[in-house]
Design a protein around this nucleic acid. Structure first.
Lengths: 200, 200
DNA sequence: CGCACTCTTGACCGCACTCAACGTTGGTGG
DNA sequence: CCACCAACGTTGAGTGCGGTCAAGAGTGCG
């Protein structure tokens, strides 16, 4: 009934506008979900990690495109069977509603970021978000497997500005770069502050 | 079991961080949902219209603040009773998941807008969005009951830029201003184009 | 009519974008 | 193993869009 699916980095899973043929659960790796404008401008609306659902939305058509960032493994459920399963098992539906709530809250945070934060605040917020979503100890380094271009397209910036902002955070000793895709947070409290403190 | 609730313009319904005590269905008027940063920067993450659910998210705490834009009427369901009702009636849960999907898709559109569109594209998109959400005939004017400040805080702009962008759309004959809160779309196709055409 | 508030318009400024050069990294083949 | 090369990332210089600051126009209420 459910089948496994593997993707190589940069390989697509589905595209915006296509009919939804299946639901997925990510089991390994990272995917990006994005939308495009006609002239090629791109907004990455989210990154998906192990445990996340994909295509659970009840619409008939995908509202964004999904592509692998790293090597990815997913569990695939054909749509009809998935919908049937939902009807049988109300706790599954509750689980999905739960994730939808979480994603909506994340989307709202991202709107605040995109609408009202400056470049450094966006990058600082992003690093902290990525850390929160990985299961890490206090001083484990944060993995950022995606390219600078992907980060820029997620934060509504350019590659150059992302790079400059990371450099500034490094200069201020808030983070270290262990390597291009691995960042250590040196001063979490000050990084939180640099990310733009929440009201309350 | 359900009770009615009325709000005057600018009156608050709940605040970010408060425990969720009830769910609501909007029956009349318009509300705004927003988040704040410590220094007062504000992002309006959405406007709620009749038929929309509020506080359906399964989290314990509100993730944003809700305030009336116009006079508002809502139907209020205490949280415990609402959750019980959900368990009894799976179609209610489905309905809520349906709205969550819709809202998530809208949030993703908004991220594209905030991350990648310029000022004029944002304002044009906003006018078209508002028209789509009201039940209007082809040449009915669009109601924008919220202030320019609210529009700015929704689009990640300043009041001045919103005003200038509307003026530009007016100069280009894409819209007419019948009054401060009432706009007529003159050339829908060109306005759609000015809003930044979607890929595909 | 007067006052307060919202909206619009104008002049100037600054942050992030653009364009360009350079550095770094990883993969390939000699 | 190193040389080469293409892709990615960083850094610098200059520009422009939208923000800031300020003044004026429009609106609604008492």
């Amino acid at each position: 009934m459910a089948s496994e699916r593997r993707l190589a980095p940069e390989q697509g899973l589905f595209e915006e506008g296509e009919p939804v043929e299946a639901a997925y659960v990510v089991t390994q790796g990272m995917l990006k979900l994005f939308k495009l404008l006609a002239d090629g401008r791109r907004q990455i609306v989210g990154f998906m990690l192990p445990g996340d659902f994909l295509g659970f939305a009840l619409g008939e058509l995908h509202v964004c495109t999904a592509e692998a960032v790293t090597e990815v493994e997913l569990c695939r459920f054909p749509r009809a069977q998935f919908l049937a399963l939902c009807d049988e098992c109300p706790s599954l539906e509750k689980e999905i509603l739960q994730q939808a709530s979480t994603e909506l809250a994340a989307a709202q945070d991202q709107m605040l970021l995109l609408g009202r934060k400056n470049a450094t605040e966006r990058v600082a917020s992003f690093v902290l978000n990525m850390r929160r979503r990985q299961r890490l100890g206090p001083s484990d380094p944060v993995r950022l497997p995606m390219s600078r271009t992907d980060i820029a397209d997620h934060l509504g910036l350019t590659v150059e500005t992302v790079s400059r902002s990371l450099s500034r955070l490094r200069t201020q000793r808030l983070i270290d770069s262990l390597d291009r895709h691995l960042i250590r947070i040196r001063q979490e409290a000050r990084l939180e502050e640099a990310a733009g403190a929440r009201h309350c």
